[in-house]
């Protein structure tokens, strides 16, 4: 293992997938739904089914970027008082299962926990870094400093509405990969992924150069859509479809089966 600050766990894992001629599969699940142990079991099942990276969701009371599926699960976790200690437990469990854990959090839970403390504890638990959907680089000075010092990845988002100038500054602030939010809207499964994703990925690559992986999220729910996105992206991010498995009572088995379908999709040529 390299010293902190030198290796990006996310870039490394996505690089392995690329060397196998495929995209990486990134699975999102929130901590605390249906329970903390139940959510960790589901994350491990996602890894067993073929996820390379698990986005570990921090429950938040005001998830302004999430659609009804994720809102429903997260609200249960918020009511149960799930906090950062539970998140760190999940991080360690995912690392143990052999995938790369990355935390996905709205900004206030991290600021409340303490930015420095979060970076230190996340690194100690084996986490790669964090995805911050409502933190743009313009407001991220403290997080950039803390993550730099702890050797953690920072994933910011780009969107179809991002100007070329913002694509350049945002990707320059990223470490690990950049999250291309493929459609204008909130999280949730969609019937079609649409052309916007491919256009955005091309624009992002142009701004970022070849060194930063571009992963696509928002709307992917099955192997066919995953294959479609894998044709032009370094990683495919799936969230609501995983959560749907749990909401519908299919449990870890449902999550494992979905992972297997998606993992086959990202390998299709």
């Amino acid at each position: 293992m390299s010293a902190p600050g030198t290796t990006s766990l996310l870039a490394e894992r996505i690089g392995v997938a690329r060397s196998e001629g495929r995209s990486a599969l990134i699975a999102y699940l929130p901590v605390g739904y249906p329970t903390v142990p139940g959510s960790i079991e589901a994350m491990v099942a996602a890894v067993e089914g073929g996820a390379d990276v698990v986005e570990i969701g921090v429950p938040y009371s005001d998830p302004g970027m999430d659609g009804p599926t994720i809102q429903e699960a997260v609200e249960v976790a918020v009511q149960a008082g799930v906090g950062m200690a539970d998140v760190l437990t999940a991080v360690a469990a995912v690392a143990q299962a052999g995938a790369v854990p990355v935390v996905m959090s709205y900004w206030n839970p991290i600021e409340r926990y303490g930015v420095q403390r979060f970076a230190t504890d996340l690194a100690a638990a084996g986490g790669a870094g964090a995805i911050t959907p409502d933190l743009v680089p313009d407001e991220a000075a403290a997080w950039i400093a803390a993550s730099e010092e702890a050797g953690l990845d920072r994933v910011f988002l780009v969107a179809p509405s991002s100007t070329p100038a913002r694509l350049a500054t945002t990707t320059a602030a990223c470490r690990g990969f950049v999250y291309a939010a493929s459609t204008m809207g909130v999280t949730g499964t969609r019937a079609t992924v649409g052309d916007a994703a491919e256009v955005l990925v091309a624009r992002t690559r142009e701004a970022a150069g070849a060194d930063l992986a571009v992963c696509v999220g928002l709307g992917v729910s099955n192997g066919d859509q995953a294959a479609e996105v894998a044709a032009f992206a370094d990683g495919v991010i799936v969230g609501s479809a995983y959560v749907r498995q749990l909401l519908d009572g299919h449990g870890p088995d449902g999550v494992r089966a979905l992972s297997a379908d998606l993992a086959e999709g990202v390998r299709r040529r």
Binding site: D134, V136, L157, S161, R166, A181
Partner: peptide, 20 residues
Amino acid sequence: ATGHFGPYGGRFVPEALIAA
């Protein structure tokens, strides 16, 4: 110029809204 009142204010929103 970027909307800060001392340490307060700013923009904590998804990138998708920044252009708007």
